[in-house]
Amino acid sequence: MKLVGDTAPAVEQPLRGDLEALCDFGRELSQLGPVLPSRINADPTTTEQGLAKLVLTLVELVRRLLERQAIRRIEAGSLTDEEIERMGQTFLKLDQKMAELTAAFGLKPEDLNLNLGPLGDLM
């Protein structure tokens, strides 16, 4: 099968289209997460990190849902300035605390996700 593109070298590749942007495509596709399902690491020496990842992911999910709900209420105009300030401070502290805990367990922010198989990623 021939490679068909604007500036493509004549090599055998099953690719077609804007091949000059292959690096851009590669960069974006690599952000989609591992193709193979990740699992909680059952190695006794790193069990703590595996469990922390699971728990922190669930906490992060709830935090994001609450934040989204707060934004909806702001958009609906149902909160006073004082309430917005108080909620904002709460979310900011929660955000900072999550960052601290994530780093403390040797995790990166992008680690806080779960692959739900055919449903895709949790977040």
Partner: peptide, 16 residues
């Protein structure tokens, strides 16, 4: 005039 909390939520709203 906004406090730190309101500024945080404003940034989130814009991003959303």
């Amino acid at each position: 005039q906004m406090g730190v909390g309101a500024r945080y939520l404003r940034a989130k709203l814009v991003a959303h």
